[in-house]
Nucleic acid binder design. Sequence first.
DNA 1: CGTGGCCCCTGATTGC
DNA 2: TGCAATCAGGGGCCAC
Length: 292
Amino acid sequence: MPELPEVEVVRRGLERWVAGRTVDAVEVLHPRAVRRHAGGGADFAARLAGETFAVPRRRGKYLWLPLAERDLSVLGHLGMSGQLLVQPEDAPDEKHLRIRIRFRDGAGTELRFVDQRTFGGLSLHESAADSEEGLPDVIAHIARDPLDPLFAEAAYHLALRAKRTTVKRALLDQSLISGVGNIYADEALWRARLHYERPTATLTRLRSVELLGHVRDVMNAALAVGGTSFDSLYVNVNGESGYFDRSLDAYGREDEPCRRCGTPMRRRPWMNRSSYFCPRCQRPGRIARAAS
DNA sequence: CGTGGCCCCTGATTGC
DNA sequence: TGCAATCAGGGGCCAC
């Protein structure tokens, strides 16, 4: 499922295939897909008809399509299984098609939101009052992501030091840093040789800057090959899968040798998910052990 | 208040 | 074969 690199691939697809197009009609096929929209499916469809999409933007795992003539955006989140597909109008409906957006031009394609698990969705929002980039108000609490030139590194380090939590939880906390999910958290921690339960308060400035560098590196590497995909659940806006799963060093490699030291990698249940790590390269350290 | 845990869904896979 | 349990890359919300 999509983290920042996958969402950015989708954003670029929307920029190419959807920006500048005017909506003809919208069909909402599942109410959960618009549950964040205050007025419900009928209101979502009615308010979007006749509007023209401007250039899509992204922060972390959220993306939004500003409406050219209004201070409103269609906010999208792909959740665990969401896809935004530009399909020929006569292509058969996908099994989990939730929203269809038709356009008022002769291009012959439409935008489809397809989402098996319905954790994702689309909704219409006004921009946050102080936002220059049209950031929808409901995601004003989402921090800038590590690929954002305005990401504040010094403030990030100070926030980590002030938290009484562990490093992987902090990487997944979208109000501190956005765009990092379970896969890239494990990958960055492996690269940084940090155990996922290392208390953030014990990280030196140097270590947190290093970790951030690894987060950026792994995301840029994924972006270069179109994101990560294990199966057909994730495809980009044209229906093509990414290839980064071939390059993962930690995620999904239980019992396989660590690519640095050869020790079998481990998987531990963690927050209803899994953490993958090398028991030799990524030790908890004295402080974490004494605290636990 | 900050932090951790729960839960919203569907479907594939695994184990009995 | 069938059924139950487990798991999946997210994040809002609510107890404590």
